[in-house]
């Protein structure tokens, strides 16, 4: 009796495992996969774009890889097989195009702005509060686009607010995170008092609010997009790129908080 039960349980288990594997490994017959490497800040917007693209293009699967643009550029330079690269700044894009890996020039497709992200109940109200002693401030790493933009913004602040103010802000920095989403996560978890992220990142999070940064200090934020040789399917990559740049594509980006390209 027990033997029988065991046998039944085992076959069930095996069936479950096989079904799970099939689910994981399944790609529709004859499906074409477009591999898109996109900046962390594009996570929500590009996931939505990819799903709507798949809905209108039967047999095409868009595989997304999100990380800091600097990480993605490094991976592409090391031979990662990507079809499309969407960077959060021109510097990381230039690393790729300098190596001659692109098919056609990069196209700016979005803009953004910086905000201070803080827990809803925090006492951070204005830009000046960043200099308050003891504040735990988190930025992205200097080579990560949003970290680079934050450094640019602080350099601009040094000119108008004075270098003593900026030194006070810098002394509050407790970490330089590997990408914008992890930077925001430190505030969302309540571990940090403030983070400098993109306006678009503040949208999908709960328990946080954003504090504006004076327009005079805002750096120019540009997201360029390029089709790469390394993917080996230029037509499909080109079609996805055109979709991002189309009116519905740009409207979707706007609905996720991105500005038109400056």
């Amino acid at each position: 009796m027990w033997r029988l039960l065991e046998f039944v349980a085992m076959t069930r288990l095996v069936r479950c495992v096989v079904a799970a594997l099939a689910l994981v490994l399944a790609t529709p017959a004859g499906a074409q996969t477009v591999r898109v490497f996109a900046a962390s800040s594009l996570t929500d917007a590009f996931t939505a774009l990819a799903r709507s693209y798949e809905a209108t293009h039967r047999g095409v699967h868009v595989a997304l890889d999100f990380a800091a643009s600097s990480t993605l550029a490094t991976q592409i330079l090391q031979g990662a097989p990507a079809d499309v690269f969407a960077s959060a700044n021109p510097i990381q894009m230039k690393r790729v195009t300098d190596a001659g890996l692109q098919l056609g020039p990069p196209t700016p497709f979005a803009g953004n702005s910086l905000v201070i992200l803080t827990p809803s109940r925090s006492t951070v109200r204005t830009f000046d509060d960043l200099a308050r002693p003891g504040l735990l401030l988190v930025l992205a790493a200097p080579q990560v686009p949003v970290g680079h933009y934050a450094d640019e913004m602080l350099a601009a602040a040094a000119r108008t607010y004075g270098s003593a103010f900026v030194d006070a802000v810098r002394s509050n920095v407790v970490s330089r995170e590997p990408n914008v989403r992890q930077t925001a996560a430190k505030v969302a978890l309540g571990a940090a008092d403030a983070a400098i992220v993109y306006a678009s990142d503040a949208r999908g999070l709960t328990g946080v609010r954003s504090v504006t940064i004076p327009p005079a200090l805002q750096p120019t934020i540009v997201y360029p997009l390029v089709v790469l040789k390394s993917g080996g399917q230029p037509a499909a990559a080109q079609a996805f790129r055109d979709f991002v740049l189309s009116r519905p594509g740009l409207a979707a980006l706007a609905s996720y908080g991105f500005a038109p390209p400056p």
Binding site: A141, P142, V174, S175, P178, K186
Partner: peptide, 24 residues
């Protein structure tokens, strides 16, 4: 990197520094 973050001289140990320098 999750509990201590990554800041040069304070929390950026060798593996974290390797990860940061990989890109620059």
């Amino acid at each position: 990197i999750v509990v201590a973050g990554s800041l040069e001289g304070r929390t950026q140990t060798m593996p974290l520094a390797i990860y940061a320098e990989l890109e620059s």
